[in-house]
Design a protein around this nucleic acid. Structure first.
Lengths: 226, 226
DNA sequence: TTTTAATTTTAGATTTGTCTAAATTTTATT
DNA sequence: AATAAAATTTAGACAAATCTAAAATTAAAA
Protein backbone atom coordinates (compact mmCIF):
# COMPACT_ATOMS: atom_id res chain seq x y z
CA UNK A 1 0.00 0.00 0.00
CA UNK A 2 1.17 3.49 -0.80
CA UNK A 3 1.67 6.54 1.41
CA UNK A 4 -0.46 9.18 -0.26
CA UNK A 5 0.09 12.91 0.02
CA UNK A 6 -2.70 13.15 2.53
CA UNK A 7 -1.17 10.42 4.64
CA UNK A 8 2.17 12.20 4.52
CA UNK A 9 0.52 15.36 5.74
CA UNK A 10 -1.06 13.52 8.62
CA UNK A 11 2.22 11.89 9.61
CA UNK A 12 4.02 15.20 9.54
CA UNK A 13 1.36 16.96 11.59
CA UNK A 14 1.34 14.18 14.17
CA UNK A 15 5.10 14.42 14.44
CA UNK A 16 5.01 18.17 15.03
CA UNK A 17 2.24 17.93 17.59
CA UNK A 18 4.08 15.14 19.38
CA UNK A 19 7.15 17.35 19.61
CA UNK A 20 5.18 20.24 20.99
CA UNK A 21 2.71 18.56 23.33
CA UNK A 22 3.90 15.04 23.86
CA UNK A 23 0.51 13.59 23.15
CA UNK A 24 -1.71 14.29 20.19
CA UNK A 25 -5.48 14.34 20.12
CA UNK A 26 -7.88 13.75 17.29
CA UNK A 27 -9.29 17.25 17.63
CA UNK A 28 -5.90 18.95 17.66
CA UNK A 29 -4.88 17.06 14.57
CA UNK A 30 -8.09 17.97 12.80
CA UNK A 31 -7.50 21.62 13.66
CA UNK A 32 -3.95 21.78 12.34
CA UNK A 33 -4.94 19.98 9.17
CA UNK A 34 -8.08 22.05 8.64
CA UNK A 35 -10.16 18.94 8.43
CA UNK A 36 -12.82 17.25 10.55
CA UNK A 37 -12.28 14.94 13.51
CA UNK A 38 -14.22 12.21 11.72
CA UNK A 39 -11.87 12.43 8.76
CA UNK A 40 -8.90 12.18 11.08
CA UNK A 41 -10.27 9.03 12.63
CA UNK A 42 -10.65 7.50 9.20
CA UNK A 43 -7.07 8.29 8.41
CA UNK A 44 -5.77 7.02 11.75
CA UNK A 45 -7.23 3.64 10.96
CA UNK A 46 -5.46 3.53 7.63
CA UNK A 47 -2.15 4.59 9.14
CA UNK A 48 -2.51 1.92 11.79
CA UNK A 49 -3.10 -0.70 9.14
CA UNK A 50 0.16 0.32 7.51
CA UNK A 51 1.92 0.08 10.89
CA UNK A 52 2.90 3.72 10.74
CA UNK A 53 0.87 4.50 13.83
CA UNK A 54 0.20 2.90 17.18
CA UNK A 55 -3.45 3.49 17.79
CA UNK A 56 -6.24 2.17 19.96
CA UNK A 57 -9.57 3.76 19.53
CA UNK A 58 -10.64 6.21 22.16
CA UNK A 59 -7.29 5.66 23.94
CA UNK A 60 -4.99 7.82 21.82
CA UNK A 61 -2.20 7.33 19.31
CA UNK A 62 1.43 8.02 18.46
CA UNK A 63 3.80 7.40 15.60
CA UNK A 64 5.47 4.02 15.36
CA UNK A 65 9.18 3.81 14.57
CA UNK A 66 8.33 3.48 10.91
CA UNK A 67 5.92 6.36 11.08
CA UNK A 68 8.44 8.59 12.75
CA UNK A 69 10.99 7.74 10.11
CA UNK A 70 8.55 8.62 7.36
CA UNK A 71 7.63 11.90 9.03
CA UNK A 72 11.26 12.92 9.44
CA UNK A 73 11.95 12.27 5.78
CA UNK A 74 9.11 14.57 4.81
CA UNK A 75 10.40 17.26 7.13
CA UNK A 76 13.86 16.84 5.66
CA UNK A 77 12.46 17.40 2.21
CA UNK A 78 10.41 20.39 3.28
CA UNK A 79 13.34 22.14 4.89
CA UNK A 80 15.82 21.42 2.14
CA UNK A 81 13.41 22.82 -0.44
CA UNK A 82 12.87 25.90 1.69
CA UNK A 83 16.58 26.40 1.85
CA UNK A 84 16.83 26.00 -1.90
CA UNK A 85 14.07 28.51 -2.53
CA UNK A 86 15.63 31.16 -0.31
CA UNK A 87 19.29 30.65 -1.07
CA UNK A 88 19.17 29.80 -4.75
CA UNK A 89 15.95 31.33 -6.04
CA UNK A 90 15.97 34.49 -3.93
CA UNK A 91 12.64 33.95 -2.30
CA UNK A 92 11.93 35.71 0.97
CA UNK A 93 11.85 33.44 3.99
CA UNK A 94 8.23 34.40 4.53
CA UNK A 95 7.01 33.18 1.15
CA UNK A 96 8.49 29.72 0.86
CA UNK A 97 6.31 27.69 3.19
CA UNK A 98 3.44 26.92 0.85
CA UNK A 99 5.66 26.01 -2.07
CA UNK A 100 7.74 23.70 0.11
CA UNK A 101 4.49 22.17 1.27
CA UNK A 102 4.04 20.93 -2.29
CA UNK A 103 7.64 20.06 -3.03
CA UNK A 104 7.99 17.93 0.09
CA UNK A 105 5.82 15.26 -1.53
CA UNK A 106 8.14 14.58 -4.45
CA UNK A 107 9.19 11.04 -3.82
CA UNK A 108 12.66 10.46 -5.27
CA UNK A 109 15.16 9.71 -2.57
CA UNK A 110 18.05 10.28 -4.91
CA UNK A 111 16.70 13.70 -5.77
CA UNK A 112 16.66 14.85 -2.21
CA UNK A 113 20.12 13.54 -1.42
CA UNK A 114 21.52 15.25 -4.50
CA UNK A 115 19.74 18.45 -3.56
CA UNK A 116 21.23 18.23 -0.09
CA UNK A 117 24.73 17.94 -1.55
CA UNK A 118 24.08 20.72 -4.05
CA UNK A 119 23.10 23.03 -1.20
CA UNK A 120 26.21 22.08 0.77
CA UNK A 121 24.45 19.96 3.43
CA UNK A 122 22.92 22.88 5.30
CA UNK A 123 22.15 22.37 8.98
CA UNK A 124 19.10 24.56 9.33
CA UNK A 125 16.40 25.89 7.05
CA UNK A 126 15.72 29.60 6.55
CA UNK A 127 13.49 29.69 9.64
CA UNK A 128 16.24 28.22 11.78
CA UNK A 129 14.76 24.75 12.02
CA UNK A 130 17.27 21.92 11.89
CA UNK A 131 17.35 19.81 8.73
CA UNK A 132 17.41 16.05 9.37
CA UNK A 133 20.34 14.34 7.67
CA UNK A 134 20.01 11.59 5.10
CA UNK A 135 19.89 8.97 7.88
CA UNK A 136 16.99 10.77 9.48
CA UNK A 137 18.96 12.12 12.41
CA UNK A 138 17.43 15.31 13.66
CA UNK A 139 19.25 17.80 15.88
CA UNK A 140 17.24 18.97 18.83
CA UNK A 141 17.73 22.62 19.40
CA UNK A 142 18.25 24.21 22.77
CA UNK A 143 16.37 27.41 22.42
CA UNK A 144 13.72 29.28 24.26
CA UNK A 145 10.94 31.54 23.18
CA UNK A 146 11.38 35.28 23.33
CA UNK A 147 8.72 35.52 26.02
CA UNK A 148 10.82 33.36 28.35
CA UNK A 149 13.91 35.52 27.95
CA UNK A 150 15.18 37.55 30.87
CA UNK A 151 15.30 41.34 30.60
CA UNK A 152 18.36 43.20 29.34
CA UNK A 153 20.10 40.27 27.81
CA UNK A 154 20.94 40.05 24.15
CA UNK A 155 19.95 37.01 22.18
CA UNK A 156 19.89 35.89 18.61
CA UNK A 157 16.81 34.76 16.75
CA UNK A 158 17.29 31.10 15.92
CA UNK A 159 13.86 29.98 14.88
CA UNK A 160 10.21 30.72 14.37
CA UNK A 161 7.78 28.30 15.94
CA UNK A 162 4.63 29.13 14.06
CA UNK A 163 5.05 29.96 10.44
CA UNK A 164 1.89 31.52 9.17
CA UNK A 165 2.80 34.00 6.50
CA UNK A 166 0.91 36.70 8.41
CA UNK A 167 3.25 36.22 11.32
CA UNK A 168 6.36 36.12 9.16
CA UNK A 169 5.26 39.29 7.45
CA UNK A 170 4.90 41.07 10.77
CA UNK A 171 8.42 40.05 11.75
CA UNK A 172 9.79 41.07 8.39
CA UNK A 173 8.15 44.46 8.87
CA UNK A 174 9.91 44.92 12.20
CA UNK A 175 13.24 43.87 10.74
CA UNK A 176 13.35 40.73 12.78
CA UNK A 177 14.75 37.77 10.95
CA UNK A 178 16.84 34.71 11.52
CA UNK A 179 20.07 35.69 13.14
CA UNK A 180 18.84 39.09 14.24
CA UNK A 181 20.35 40.02 17.56
CA UNK A 182 17.96 41.70 19.94
CA UNK A 183 17.47 42.77 23.51
CA UNK A 184 14.37 42.84 25.69
CA UNK A 185 13.87 46.30 27.11
CA UNK A 186 10.55 46.08 28.91
CA UNK A 187 7.87 43.58 29.77
CA UNK A 188 4.27 44.66 30.27
CA UNK A 189 2.60 42.22 32.64
CA UNK A 190 -0.84 43.53 31.73
CA UNK A 191 -0.92 41.75 28.38
CA UNK A 192 2.52 40.11 28.42
CA UNK A 193 3.61 42.21 25.50
CA UNK A 194 7.22 43.28 25.42
CA UNK A 195 9.44 45.91 23.93
CA UNK A 196 12.51 44.78 22.07
CA UNK A 197 15.39 46.66 20.58
CA UNK A 198 17.18 45.69 17.40
CA UNK A 199 20.49 47.33 16.65
CA UNK A 200 20.24 50.62 14.76
CA UNK A 201 16.44 50.71 14.96
CA UNK A 202 13.85 52.28 17.19
CA UNK A 203 12.40 49.88 19.77
CA UNK A 204 9.25 47.99 18.83
CA UNK A 205 6.52 46.34 20.83
CA UNK A 206 5.63 42.72 20.25
CA UNK A 207 2.48 41.01 21.48
CA UNK A 208 2.74 37.96 23.71
CA UNK A 209 1.39 35.93 20.86
CA UNK A 210 4.27 36.88 18.63
CA UNK A 211 6.92 36.67 21.34
CA UNK A 212 5.90 33.14 22.16
CA UNK A 213 6.67 32.10 18.61
CA UNK A 214 10.03 33.74 18.23
CA UNK A 215 12.74 31.35 19.33
CA UNK A 216 16.13 32.59 20.43
CA UNK A 217 19.43 31.40 21.71
CA UNK A 218 20.93 33.58 24.38
CA UNK A 219 24.47 34.63 23.70
CA UNK A 220 26.05 32.17 26.13
CA UNK A 221 24.59 29.13 24.49
CA UNK A 222 25.64 30.55 21.16
CA UNK A 223 29.18 31.10 22.34
CA UNK A 224 29.35 27.58 23.64
CA UNK A 225 28.64 26.21 20.17
CA UNK A 226 31.95 27.16 18.66
CA UNK B 1 -12.95 24.09 -10.56
CA UNK B 2 -9.36 22.92 -10.25
CA UNK B 3 -7.03 21.31 -12.74
CA UNK B 4 -5.94 18.14 -10.99
CA UNK B 5 -2.71 16.29 -11.64
CA UNK B 6 -4.58 13.74 -13.70
CA UNK B 7 -6.15 16.46 -15.80
CA UNK B 8 -2.74 18.03 -16.34
CA UNK B 9 -1.42 14.71 -17.53
CA UNK B 10 -4.26 14.38 -19.99
CA UNK B 11 -3.74 17.88 -21.35
CA UNK B 12 -0.06 17.28 -21.81
CA UNK B 13 -0.57 13.97 -23.55
CA UNK B 14 -3.17 15.46 -25.87
CA UNK B 15 -0.78 18.25 -26.73
CA UNK B 16 2.02 15.87 -27.60
CA UNK B 17 -0.21 13.64 -29.69
CA UNK B 18 -1.59 16.65 -31.49
CA UNK B 19 1.94 17.72 -32.38
CA UNK B 20 2.83 14.30 -33.66
CA UNK B 21 -0.31 13.20 -35.47
CA UNK B 22 -2.46 16.26 -35.88
CA UNK B 23 -5.53 14.52 -34.56
CA UNK B 24 -5.83 12.56 -31.35
CA UNK B 25 -8.01 9.56 -30.71
CA UNK B 26 -9.46 8.23 -27.51
CA UNK B 27 -7.59 4.98 -27.91
CA UNK B 28 -4.25 6.61 -28.58
CA UNK B 29 -4.66 8.78 -25.55
CA UNK B 30 -5.57 5.81 -23.39
CA UNK B 31 -2.48 4.00 -24.62
CA UNK B 32 -0.04 6.81 -23.87
CA UNK B 33 -1.54 7.35 -20.44
CA UNK B 34 -1.70 3.63 -19.62
CA UNK B 35 -5.36 3.91 -18.84
CA UNK B 36 -8.60 2.71 -20.39
CA UNK B 37 -10.56 4.31 -23.20
CA UNK B 38 -13.58 4.58 -20.95
CA UNK B 39 -11.56 6.52 -18.41
CA UNK B 40 -10.35 8.84 -21.12
CA UNK B 41 -13.90 9.55 -22.20
CA UNK B 42 -14.80 10.44 -18.62
CA UNK B 43 -11.92 12.86 -18.45
CA UNK B 44 -12.68 14.40 -21.83
CA UNK B 45 -16.09 15.36 -20.56
CA UNK B 46 -14.60 17.08 -17.55
CA UNK B 47 -12.04 18.94 -19.62
CA UNK B 48 -14.75 20.06 -21.97
CA UNK B 49 -16.77 21.39 -19.06
CA UNK B 50 -13.77 23.47 -18.04
CA UNK B 51 -13.44 24.73 -21.61
CA UNK B 52 -9.97 23.30 -21.91
CA UNK B 53 -11.04 21.01 -24.71
CA UNK B 54 -13.22 21.22 -27.77
CA UNK B 55 -15.01 17.93 -27.87
CA UNK B 56 -18.05 16.38 -29.46
CA UNK B 57 -18.70 12.83 -28.67
CA UNK B 58 -17.80 10.28 -31.30
CA UNK B 59 -16.54 13.12 -33.50
CA UNK B 60 -13.16 13.79 -31.93
CA UNK B 61 -11.49 16.48 -29.86
CA UNK B 62 -8.66 18.97 -29.63
CA UNK B 63 -7.28 21.43 -27.12
CA UNK B 64 -8.91 24.83 -26.85
CA UNK B 65 -6.76 27.94 -26.63
CA UNK B 66 -6.95 27.74 -22.87
CA UNK B 67 -6.15 24.06 -22.90
CA UNK B 68 -3.16 24.58 -25.13
CA UNK B 69 -1.89 27.29 -22.83
CA UNK B 70 -2.21 25.04 -19.83
CA UNK B 71 -0.45 22.18 -21.59
CA UNK B 72 2.45 24.37 -22.64
CA UNK B 73 2.93 25.59 -19.10
CA UNK B 74 3.21 22.03 -17.88
CA UNK B 75 5.72 21.23 -20.59
CA UNK B 76 7.67 24.33 -19.63
CA UNK B 77 7.82 23.13 -16.06
CA UNK B 78 8.79 19.61 -17.04
CA UNK B 79 11.66 20.73 -19.22
CA UNK B 80 13.00 23.33 -16.83
CA UNK B 81 13.09 20.78 -14.04
CA UNK B 82 14.86 18.29 -16.29
CA UNK B 83 17.43 20.92 -17.07
CA UNK B 84 17.87 21.64 -13.38
CA UNK B 85 18.30 17.98 -12.52
CA UNK B 86 20.95 17.43 -15.16
CA UNK B 87 22.84 20.67 -14.95
CA UNK B 88 22.70 21.39 -11.24
CA UNK B 89 22.19 18.02 -9.57
CA UNK B 90 24.37 15.95 -11.91
CA UNK B 91 21.70 13.51 -12.94
CA UNK B 92 22.16 11.62 -16.19
CA UNK B 93 19.85 12.71 -18.98
CA UNK B 94 18.37 9.23 -19.03
CA UNK B 95 17.21 9.27 -15.41
CA UNK B 96 15.41 12.57 -15.09
CA UNK B 97 12.14 11.93 -16.87
CA UNK B 98 10.19 10.30 -14.06
CA UNK B 99 11.26 12.84 -11.47
CA UNK B 100 10.32 15.73 -13.75
CA UNK B 101 7.00 14.00 -14.27
CA UNK B 102 6.32 14.67 -10.60
CA UNK B 103 7.88 18.11 -10.37
CA UNK B 104 5.91 19.42 -13.33
CA UNK B 105 2.79 19.48 -11.18
CA UNK B 106 4.08 21.94 -8.61
CA UNK B 107 1.82 24.88 -9.12
CA UNK B 108 3.64 28.09 -8.19
CA UNK B 109 4.12 30.33 -11.20
CA UNK B 110 6.67 32.43 -9.38
CA UNK B 111 8.70 29.34 -8.58
CA UNK B 112 9.02 28.33 -12.18
CA UNK B 113 9.93 31.80 -13.40
CA UNK B 114 12.59 32.09 -10.71
CA UNK B 115 13.90 28.67 -11.60
CA UNK B 116 14.07 29.71 -15.24
CA UNK B 117 16.15 32.77 -14.34
CA UNK B 118 18.35 30.75 -11.99
CA UNK B 119 19.13 28.34 -14.81
CA UNK B 120 19.92 31.21 -17.18
CA UNK B 121 16.81 30.91 -19.35
CA UNK B 122 17.89 27.79 -21.18
CA UNK B 123 16.46 27.20 -24.64
CA UNK B 124 16.32 23.42 -24.68
CA UNK B 125 16.12 20.66 -22.12
CA UNK B 126 18.72 17.90 -21.80
CA UNK B 127 16.97 15.84 -24.49
CA UNK B 128 17.11 18.74 -26.91
CA UNK B 129 13.46 19.68 -26.67
CA UNK B 130 12.75 23.41 -26.70
CA UNK B 131 11.62 25.01 -23.44
CA UNK B 132 8.59 27.30 -23.78
CA UNK B 133 9.27 30.78 -22.44
CA UNK B 134 7.30 32.40 -19.64
CA UNK B 135 4.73 33.68 -22.16
CA UNK B 136 4.17 30.17 -23.42
CA UNK B 137 5.95 30.70 -26.72
CA UNK B 138 7.37 27.44 -27.97
CA UNK B 139 10.07 27.16 -30.62
CA UNK B 140 9.35 24.61 -33.29
CA UNK B 141 12.41 22.72 -34.23
CA UNK B 142 13.41 21.84 -37.73
CA UNK B 143 14.85 18.42 -37.34
CA UNK B 144 14.49 15.04 -38.87
CA UNK B 145 14.80 11.56 -37.54
CA UNK B 146 17.98 9.63 -38.05
CA UNK B 147 16.15 7.18 -40.27
CA UNK B 148 15.32 9.95 -42.74
CA UNK B 149 18.91 11.13 -43.00
CA UNK B 150 20.81 10.64 -46.25
CA UNK B 151 23.92 8.46 -46.32
CA UNK B 152 27.38 9.85 -45.70
CA UNK B 153 26.38 13.12 -44.26
CA UNK B 154 27.28 14.19 -40.76
CA UNK B 155 24.61 15.44 -38.42
CA UNK B 156 24.27 16.35 -34.79
CA UNK B 157 21.82 14.74 -32.36
CA UNK B 158 19.36 17.42 -31.34
CA UNK B 159 16.61 15.48 -29.65
CA UNK B 160 15.10 12.19 -28.66
CA UNK B 161 11.51 11.63 -29.65
CA UNK B 162 10.57 8.79 -27.35
CA UNK B 163 12.07 8.91 -23.94
CA UNK B 164 11.62 5.57 -22.31
CA UNK B 165 14.55 4.99 -20.04
CA UNK B 166 15.25 1.70 -21.84
CA UNK B 167 15.80 3.62 -25.03
CA UNK B 168 17.92 6.29 -23.38
CA UNK B 169 20.03 3.61 -21.76
CA UNK B 170 20.68 1.99 -25.12
CA UNK B 171 21.83 5.30 -26.56
CA UNK B 172 23.98 6.00 -23.56
CA UNK B 173 25.61 2.61 -24.03
CA UNK B 174 26.45 3.47 -27.62
CA UNK B 175 27.86 6.86 -26.65
CA UNK B 176 25.13 8.71 -28.41
CA UNK B 177 23.92 11.75 -26.56
CA UNK B 178 22.65 15.22 -27.24
CA UNK B 179 25.09 17.06 -29.41
CA UNK B 180 26.85 13.92 -30.58
CA UNK B 181 27.96 14.28 -34.16
CA UNK B 182 27.49 11.18 -36.28
CA UNK B 183 27.47 9.85 -39.79
CA UNK B 184 25.35 7.20 -41.45
CA UNK B 185 27.56 4.60 -43.06
CA UNK B 186 25.12 1.98 -44.28
CA UNK B 187 21.44 1.30 -44.49
CA UNK B 188 20.07 -2.22 -44.51
CA UNK B 189 16.80 -2.25 -46.38
CA UNK B 190 15.94 -5.70 -45.03
CA UNK B 191 14.99 -4.41 -41.56
CA UNK B 192 15.73 -0.72 -42.04
CA UNK B 193 18.49 -0.89 -39.50
CA UNK B 194 21.50 1.30 -40.09
CA UNK B 195 25.11 1.58 -39.17
CA UNK B 196 26.35 4.84 -37.73
CA UNK B 197 29.77 6.08 -36.85
CA UNK B 198 30.56 8.33 -33.94
CA UNK B 199 33.97 10.00 -33.84
CA UNK B 200 36.68 7.91 -32.21
CA UNK B 201 34.48 4.85 -31.84
CA UNK B 202 33.83 1.69 -33.74
CA UNK B 203 30.65 1.82 -35.86
CA UNK B 204 27.46 0.56 -34.29
CA UNK B 205 24.21 -0.74 -35.70
CA UNK B 206 20.91 0.81 -34.68
CA UNK B 207 17.50 -0.72 -35.25
CA UNK B 208 14.89 1.15 -37.26
CA UNK B 209 12.92 1.56 -34.07
CA UNK B 210 15.75 3.43 -32.42
CA UNK B 211 16.73 5.44 -35.49
CA UNK B 212 13.20 6.71 -35.85
CA UNK B 213 13.41 8.24 -32.41
CA UNK B 214 16.76 9.92 -32.68
CA UNK B 215 16.31 13.42 -34.02
CA UNK B 216 19.13 15.23 -35.74
CA UNK B 217 19.93 18.47 -37.42
CA UNK B 218 22.13 18.14 -40.47
CA UNK B 219 25.18 20.34 -40.46
CA UNK B 220 23.78 22.86 -42.92
CA UNK B 221 20.74 23.71 -40.85
CA UNK B 222 23.02 23.95 -37.84
CA UNK B 223 25.33 26.34 -39.61
CA UNK B 224 22.43 28.48 -40.65
CA UNK B 225 21.48 29.03 -37.02
CA UNK B 226 24.43 31.19 -36.11
C1' DT C 1 -21.49 9.04 41.86
C1' DT C 2 -24.75 10.51 38.79
C1' DT C 3 -25.29 13.73 35.30
C1' DT C 4 -23.51 16.69 31.91
C1' DA C 5 -20.12 17.94 28.66
C1' DA C 6 -16.47 17.05 25.61
C1' DT C 7 -14.15 13.94 22.66
C1' DT C 8 -13.99 10.38 19.54
C1' DT C 9 -15.90 7.08 16.52
C1' DT C 10 -19.42 5.02 13.36
C1' DA C 11 -22.79 5.15 9.66
C1' DG C 12 -23.90 6.71 5.53
C1' DA C 13 -23.29 10.17 1.73
C1' DT C 14 -20.32 12.73 -1.76
C1' DT C 15 -16.52 13.68 -5.08
C1' DT C 16 -12.80 12.33 -8.08
C1' DG C 17 -10.64 9.19 -10.85
C1' DT C 18 -10.59 4.81 -12.28
C1' DC C 19 -12.38 0.17 -13.92
C1' DT C 20 -15.29 -3.70 -16.62
C1' DA C 21 -18.87 -5.02 -19.44
C1' DA C 22 -22.35 -3.76 -22.42
C1' DA C 23 -24.34 -0.57 -25.72
C1' DT C 24 -23.79 2.80 -29.35
C1' DT C 25 -21.73 5.01 -33.21
C1' DT C 26 -18.48 5.23 -36.89
C1' DT C 27 -15.49 3.06 -40.23
C1' DA C 28 -14.17 -0.61 -43.20
C1' DT C 29 -15.20 -4.65 -45.98
C1' DT C 30 -17.43 -7.55 -48.82
C1' DA D 1 -25.58 -0.94 -49.19
C1' DA D 2 -25.47 -4.39 -45.76
C1' DT D 3 -22.73 -6.39 -42.50
C1' DA D 4 -18.61 -6.97 -39.78
C1' DA D 5 -15.06 -4.75 -37.18
C1' DA D 6 -13.18 -1.11 -34.66
C1' DA D 7 -13.66 2.84 -31.85
C1' DT D 8 -16.12 5.27 -28.52
C1' DT D 9 -19.36 6.02 -25.01
C1' DT D 10 -22.64 4.75 -21.23
C1' DA D 11 -23.97 2.28 -17.13
C1' DG D 12 -22.81 0.76 -13.01
C1' DA D 13 -19.16 -0.42 -9.58
C1' DC D 14 -15.11 0.57 -6.59
C1' DA D 15 -11.34 2.84 -3.76
C1' DA D 16 -9.66 6.99 -1.53
C1' DA D 17 -10.49 10.98 0.99
C1' DT D 18 -13.54 13.78 2.71
C1' DC D 19 -18.05 15.41 4.95
C1' DT D 20 -22.44 15.62 8.28
C1' DA D 21 -25.21 13.78 11.72
C1' DA D 22 -25.76 10.54 15.14
C1' DA D 23 -23.93 7.19 18.48
C1' DA D 24 -20.42 5.63 21.73
C1' DT D 25 -16.94 6.49 25.01
C1' DT D 26 -14.27 9.11 28.23
C1' DA D 27 -13.67 13.12 31.20
C1' DA D 28 -15.48 16.76 34.11
C1' DA D 29 -18.78 18.80 37.23
C1' DA D 30 -22.29 19.01 40.36
Amino acid sequence: MKVSISKENHLKAIFHLQQEHGLVTTNALAATLSTRPASVTDMLKKLKEQKLLIYEKYRGFKLSGEGRKAAVQIIRKHRLWEYFLVKKLQFGWDEVHDIAEELEHISSRKLIDRLDAFLGNPETDPHGDPIPDSQGRLQVRRQLSLSEMPLNKTAQVSGIASQTSEMLELLQYNHIRLGTRLEIRKKFPFDNSLEVKVRNRPPVTLSAQVAKNVLVKDDESLAERR
